[in-house]
Design a protein around this nucleic acid. Structure first.
Lengths: 182, 182
DNA sequence: AGGCTCATGTAACCGGTTACATGATTAT
DNA sequence: ATAATCATGTAACCGGTTACATGAGCCT
């Protein structure tokens, strides 16, 4: 897919500026869909040209002016069509340079690979600590009425937590096996 | 990173043709690093120009001729440098259009989202069944002496299995919650 | 004085995908 | 006959990254 649908999705909740979108991506989908600010601004222009969103400049006195984008009917149609389309087996695909390094780990002595895995595990553990605050932030964001929306945000956050826990368990077991032979 | 290091890694095991590499990617790292055959051939040309690999044409009578590539000293150096370099927190990043759809699932009625998750779960289950044969194929590939290499292949295969199992458990729980409200 | 937040962009590049193109041999 | 395996590529495109560029106002 592309960033475009993520932007349409957020604008479908409410109109936002490019700056708002950068923050929205950063604070929610960042862990499974990282977005550069430059890319977001580029994509906004493209989407406007395609007629899926429309921008309106808002003049501010105490702050720099900004451009608020809203989703159009055709944009909403496009977004809903994307949402309804099945990913098929592509849903299972992902890219990881780290796993590639593990795969070729036999080219390093066991202590070095073990160290790589220890660093990775530490990274996961620190990430998990940071994630602790997500459930509360979701609850504060969705105030009663939008509980149905926030349920899905909880789903993805829950997956993130499980994924990291799986990573930690797995790395621990790999480290054990490497320590046993070194 | 890029495909380049994957290719260097495989050629570091032994010389191979582009066709061999396509199969190697397909049967081992495919689940965390999918590679198009066109991309592999393109990358081989690039790597040869950079002096990291060198190709030699092998004339065959019963089959089409082929070009066998070998890694050079500078290629090996490059590969080892990549391997030793830590991924840092990038190791946690991955992209998933499917999770993006879950995140925005609140735009669909619960039965439709549940159906999406059920399809996904079924996909995972079929994948898990296919994965069952991997451990044996790794063992047959690594014959005694290279047991240290195959250990790492087992690590990545093990992670794949755990990941899919995590996906299945998570999807099951999401489906339960959606069925409860619809 | 220095750093943070707000706010928006451009240019060059690169990694990767899609679609297309060819053709011999071998197994069913 | 027909499909599968062996074998290699090109061209156009696209999604995304990196690096750069600017500038006001607020807080310490």
């Amino acid at each position: 897919m592309s960033l475009a649908f993520g932007i349409l999705g957020f604008l479908n909740y409410k109109p936002m500026s490019g700056y708002d979108l950068v923050k929205a991506f950063d604070s929610s989908v960042e862990f499974f869909w990282h977005a550069q600010n430059s890319h977001i601004y580029l994509e906004l222009k493209k989407l406007e040209k395609q007629g899926y969103i429309k921008g309106e400049t808002v003049i501010q006195e105490d702050r720099p002016n900004k451009k608020i984008y809203s989703i159009t009917d055709s944009g909403r149609e496009e977004f809903m069509a994307w949402l309804a389309k099945s990913e098929g087996e592509e849903a299972l695909h992902f890219k990881s340079a780290f796993l590639m390094k593990v795969f070729f780990g036999g080219n390093m002595p066991p202590e070095q690979s073990a160290e790589m895995l220890r660093q990775f595990k530490a990274e996961c553990e620190s990430y998990l600590r940071k994630m602790g605050s997500i459930p509360e932030s979701i609850e504060s964001y969705g105030s009663g009425k939008e509980a149905y929306q926030t349920l899905y945000w909880q789903f993805t956050a829950d997956f993130g937590r499980r994924l990291i826990e799986t990573f930690i368990e797995w790395a621990g077991q790999c480290i054990d096996r490497l320590e046993a032979i070194s």
